[in-house]
Design a protein around this nucleic acid. Structure first.
Length: 568
RNA sequence: CGGGGCGUAGCGCAGCCUGGUAGCGCACCUGCCUUGGGCGCAGGGGGUCGGAGGUUCAAAUCCUCUCGCCCCGACCA
């Protein structure tokens, strides 16, 4: 492709609206342009990268027996009403009516359509198992699109669905996907972790997320460098490091005007880890007190799994149920008749603490959980870096990550309501057991860039690069430079090596800067300087290495380099 | 949806506080020049200041409403 003819607008400066590295670079290098919040145009260069990703996905999906189909973006509301998600999902679903006032949905995912199709076309156990997939547009009315292509309202997704006879079959399909996903992300040159995840609204028996580490990520994963434990912090268990407590006696201490943990610690000159944070929460069965150590945070999702929906109590409710103002709340010495259920974090199992005294202006020192109050113990804190790994006790690291893929065991959540049934060997009607599996190609691109760039621009992995070679003649007005560049461009094309040929009349500096910004793995510079010696210069973007290669050997040099670095 | 920020030329920004009829850099066009790291010189085109309403002799500037975009949080099959 000739640069002079290509829609490839590059920017010298960072766009004002971009924060994430990948977002800045994708705009500057001319991969994408934003139409509106969460809506992106892929320019020719960006589309080339996207197609590379999709080709890898297709190869690996086909390799596990996946069959590609395309389902509509526009769905009749009925199937979503049958699955119940018409009612469960709120504003995130785009809804509209057709001209006859029939309710319609813009698909945010395709479980319903797959179950509908299976209900018609799968009849016998002989028809199973099946894996169907598509690479297709999804629409979600996101509350807050962000991070460039990382979270958008319209995006491409590879979604696949497995249909099996029984849970054992599902396990096999699930594992096939797990392995295929590992291959896909590896081939795309992305560093990732497969972590256990919360099945959430998808329901079902198990789930993993594939997480690419990046500061631009919206998720956090808890990682153990020792045993390989990896989990989304939404589920991650951990043991916060213990602190040895002073041999306090059980006594009330005055803490005037000290309400927050910070204030109390400053006043008493103690470590926050020696305090108990008491939170009054309103659950559906009434008020509950949650206790976490002063340095810890309550994990709302973990807590919700224990007690169902809840919300923090209002000021007046604290007063009503605990008989004291927020700030002096504690598990010990609640007034008679005010027996609140207590749920305490596991980090409070051992130790002697300071807690609110349920009396204005006072705290109690020397509180021993289990002795001075009875509570149900559970892991309800947010895992933090430095906590001990739940399986090997080594220190954990918590890092930000981009969710590039996920896999779910659905079970019969969709097949039952949509009547996706089959007849087994005994002629019995059984529900198909389903799994659902997603990959965000745009997120792979963003993650690859987040993990591979420098101050000059993108450093594309060979597997995703829009072109293999950046052919850069320094001065086309010099006849030999022009001739050799054209000749070499021709040779590359005959050898089926894709090249971006910078045939512009720009100054050398401009061309070099653009080459670095776009980040194609190999740059071939053709100039009078090296042509005198019948040489061309080959620069490797990744390492910065520069090789001078004989003109007539340059093509095979490039071919060898590409073959050697291609991931299988 | 709560909190914060920003909308002025294609891009990045100044001007706004203290109203007086819009400016800088890059990009773009023409000519000359230059060709190993975002060349040089000369000439030129382009905005009515997100939108609406108001105050005023006069509004990019002050006031009200509104729309859009970004960030933090909530939310996130």
């Amino acid at each position: 492709m000739r640069f002079s003819k290509m829609l490839l607008p590059t920017y010298k400066e960072d766009p004002a609206e971009a924060e994430a590295i990948s977002h800045k670079l994708m705009i500057r290098a001319g991969l994408v342009r934003q139409l509106a919040a969460g809506l992106y145009i892929y320019l020719p260069l960006g589309l080339r990268v996207l197609k590379k990703v999709n080709a890898i996905i297709r190869e690996e999906m086909n390799a596990i027996g996946g069959q590609e189909i395309i389902m509509p973006v526009l769905h009749p509301a009925e199937i979503w009403q049958q699955s119940g998600r018409w009612y469960d999902i709120g504003d995130e679903m785009f809804r509209l009516q057709d001209r006859t006032k029939r309710d319609m949905v813009l698909g945010m995912t395709h479980e319903e359509v797959v179950a509908w199709l299976a209900s018609r076309e799968i009849r016998s156990y002989r028809d199973l198992p099946q894996i169907w997939y598509q690479i297709q547009t999804k629409l979600r009315d996101e509350a807050r699109p962000k991070g460039g292509v990382l979270r958008t309202r319209e995006f491409l997704m590879k979604d696949s669905y497995s249909l099996d006879l029984d849970p054992e079959g599902l396990n096999l399909s699930y594992n096939l996907h797990y392995d295929a996903y590992c291959k896909i992300f590896h081939r795309c040159g992305v560093k990732y972790y497969a972590v256990e995840s919360d099945p959430g609204m998808m329901g079902g028996a198990g789930a993993h997320e594939f997480m690419a580490l990046s500061p631009a990520g919206e998720d956090e994963v808890s990682l153990c460098g020792n045993c390989g434990y990896a989990a989304n912090v939404e589920l991650a268990n951990s043991q916060p490091p213990l602190v040895s407590s002073p041999a306090w006696n059980f006594e009330e201490v005055a803490t005037p005007e000290s309400r927050t943990i910070e204030e109390v610690c400053a006043y008493l000159k103690i470590d926050p880890r020696l305090t108990i944070k008491s939170l009054l929460l309103m659950a559906k069965d009434g008020p509950i007190m949650a206790l976490v150590r002063g340095d810890q945070k309550l994990h709302e999702k973990k807590f919700r799994r224990l007690v169902g929906e809840f919300r923090p109590a209002h000021q007046e409710e604290v007063k009503e149920h605990a008989g004291v103002e927020a700030g002096f709340l504690g598990p010990v010495g609640l007034a008679p008749g005010r027996n609140l259920p207590l749920i305490a974090d596991v980090s409070l199992k051992q130790g002697i603490f300071v807690a609110g005294a349920n009396r204005e202006g006072y705290h109690i020192r020397g509180v021993v959980p289990g002795e001075h109050f009875a509570a149900k113990f559970a892991d309800i804190h947010v895992a933090m870096s430095g906590d001990a790994c739940p399986s090997c006790n080594s220190p954990l690291k918590v890092e930000k990550a981009i969710e590039i893929g996920n896999i779910f065991k659905l079970g019969t959540k969709y097949s039952l309501p949509l009547k996706a049934l089959y007849l087994d060997r005994q002629g019995q009607e059984k529900p198909i057991v389903m799994g659902s599996y997603g990959i965000g190609p745009a997120r792979i691109i963003a993650a690859a860039i987040e993990q591979s760039f420098d101050q000059d621009g993108i450093i594309f992995p060979l597997s995703l690069t829009p072109f293999d070679v950046h052919l850069l003649p320094v001065n086309l007005k010099q006849e030999n430079v022009q001739q050799e560049a054209e000749k070499f461009y021709q040779k590359l094309s005959e050898a089926d090596i894709s090249a971006l040929f910078d045939d512009r009349a720009e100054a050398p500096g401009v061309k070099f800067k653009d080459a670095d910004l776009i980040g194609i793995p190999l740059r071939l510079t053709i100039s009078a300087k090296t042509l005198k010696e019948h040489m061309v210069e080959i620069k490797i973007r990744q390492t910065g290495e520069v090789h001078l290669v004989k003109l007539d050997q340059a093509l095979s040099w490039v071919q060898n380099w590409i073959n050697f670095h291609t991931k299988k």
